[in-house]
Design a protein around this nucleic acid. Sequence first.
DNA 1: ACAAGGTTAT
DNA 2: ATAACCTTGT
Lengths: 259, 259
Amino acid sequence: MLEARMPQGAILRKCIDAIKDLVTDGNFDCNDSGIALQAMDNSHVALVNLFLRASGFDPYRCDRNLTLGVNLGGFSKVLKCMGNDDVVTVKAEDDGDTVSLTFESKDGGRVSEFELKLVDIDSEHLGIPDTNYDAIVSMPASEFQRICRDLSVLGESVIIDVSKDGVKFSASGESGTGSITVKQGASVDKESEGTTINLNSAVQLTFSLKYLQNFSKATALADQVTLSLSADVPLLVEYTIGEVGYVRYYLAPKIGDEN
Amino acid sequence: MLEARMPQGAILRKCIDAIKDLVTDGNFDCNDSGIALQAMDNSHVALVNLFLRASGFDPYRCDRNLTLGVNLGGFSKVLKCMGNDDVVTVKAEDDGDTVSLTFESKDGGRVSEFELKLVDIDSEHLGIPDTNYDAIVSMPASEFQRICRDLSVLGESVIIDVSKDGVKFSASGESGTGSITVKQGASVDKESEGTTINLNSAVQLTFSLKYLQNFSKATALADQVTLSLSADVPLLVEYTIGEVGYVRYYLAPKIGDEN
DNA sequence: ACAAGGTTAT
DNA sequence: ATAACCTTGT
C-alpha cells in the first residue's frame, strides 16, 4: 500500500493544476523512491513528467510498486477542497480501486476525506534520452510566463534564439511583430531572480506558444524555470519544486515554415 | 405611510442579495415592529424569511400595516446604485403603487432617489411551527459556505451528520466521494470563529447542495451561521444580522434514496 | 485571499 | 451559450 503525507499539501495541488490542462488522465507510478507521472498531452504533442521524491513526504511508505490511474480533472476538483495550509495524506491499497485523500487543517479542527475513483489508462512509457543540450537558460518563471502571454497576442509561434549574452523570444502575426530579449544576469537584485545562460552553441528554434503558456501554469511551483534547447530535439521546460521534486515538459520544435 | 431610514444602508443591499436568487418577487410586510418578508423560493422547495426590526432603523415610522410587493431583481439593481456607506431611506404611501428609495452619502454631498414599481403578489403566508430541534450547530458562516461549495463539485446532495463532538458533511458522485468534519469548539481563537454543537439526539439528514449554496449568499451578513436540524423536519439555516434582524432559510430534507 | 458579478472572447 | 478573465467588495 501507499501512504504519503505531505505537510505542505498545497504543493500537490499546484502540481496537478500545472498539468491538468495538458493531460486528462494519468498514471501515478509509486515506488520507494517517490511518485512519478509521465504522460503525453491530449494531442500527443507534448510530454509531461512530474516527480515527487519520497523525501518530500513525511512519512512516506510504499511497500510495493503501485500504478494509480487518475482522472486529473477530478483530482484537481478534489484538491480545490483543500485549505491552503492543509496537510495532505494520500493513501491507496495495493488492489483497491480508489485513492484516498485526507486534508487536515493545521489546528486539527477540520478533517476532510475524499476518495477518488481510479481509472485504467494504457500509457506508453516513453524513454526520455539524456541529452547534452546546446543551450540551457534559467530565468524567473514569472518572466517566462509573461513573455509567453505577451507574445501570444501576436502569433501562434515563438522563435527562441539563444546566444552568448541573451535569449530573444520573438513572434509575428497579422498585426505586427515583436520580440523580447532577456540578457544574461539581468536584474540579479535577489538570488533566483536573474537569468543565466549556459551555452555550447547558439540555437534558434520555433515553438507553439499555446503549449508554452500551458507549461507556465507551473509558475506557482518555482521561482525559476529552466529551458534546455538543442537543434531538432524537444525543448525541455523544467520547474524545480524545492527539494521535493520537479515538473518537466517536453515540446518538439516546429520545423521549416509550417508557421 | 412607511418611512424607514437605515444608517448602514449596505445591510439592506446584502439582505436582498441574499434572497434575490431564490425569490423573484416578494411581499414586504411592514408594521410597527419592523419589516418582514416571507416567501417560498421559485421552485417552492425552500422558504425564505427576512426580518428587519424597527429598532434597526432610525427613525422608523409605519402608521398602518402595509404590504409592499416588490420584484427583488429590480430592487437589487436599484440597490446596486447605492454607495457602500450610504444611508438608505425607504418610503411608501399607504395607497401608492411605488416605493421610494433614497441614498445619501455620509457627507450629504450626494443624494440619489429611486422609485420602484410595486407588483401584486399573491403569497400564501405559511405558518412556521416552533420546533425543538434535535441538533443546533453554530459555525463560521464562511466555513459553511466553503464546505457547500467544495462538496458541490462531487455531487448534488450533502449528508449532514451531527454527533456529539462534530458535524460531518459528506457528498458523493461520479468522480468520487468526500466528507468534511468540523469538530466542536475547533479554532476558537477568536470569538465567533468557533463551532458549537447543541445536541439532543444525533441526526443525519440529506439536503440539496444547490439550495445550501444559495443560502450561503447571506454570509456577508453574519460571522456565524446556525443550522438547526431534526429528523423529517425542514433544516433551518439562520444568519443573525447584528441587532437588526435575521435571514432564515428553511429546506426540507431529501427522503429515502431519491439521491 | 476569497467569492461574486460583469464583461468579453470563443 | 459558455467559459475565462478581470474587477470589486468582504
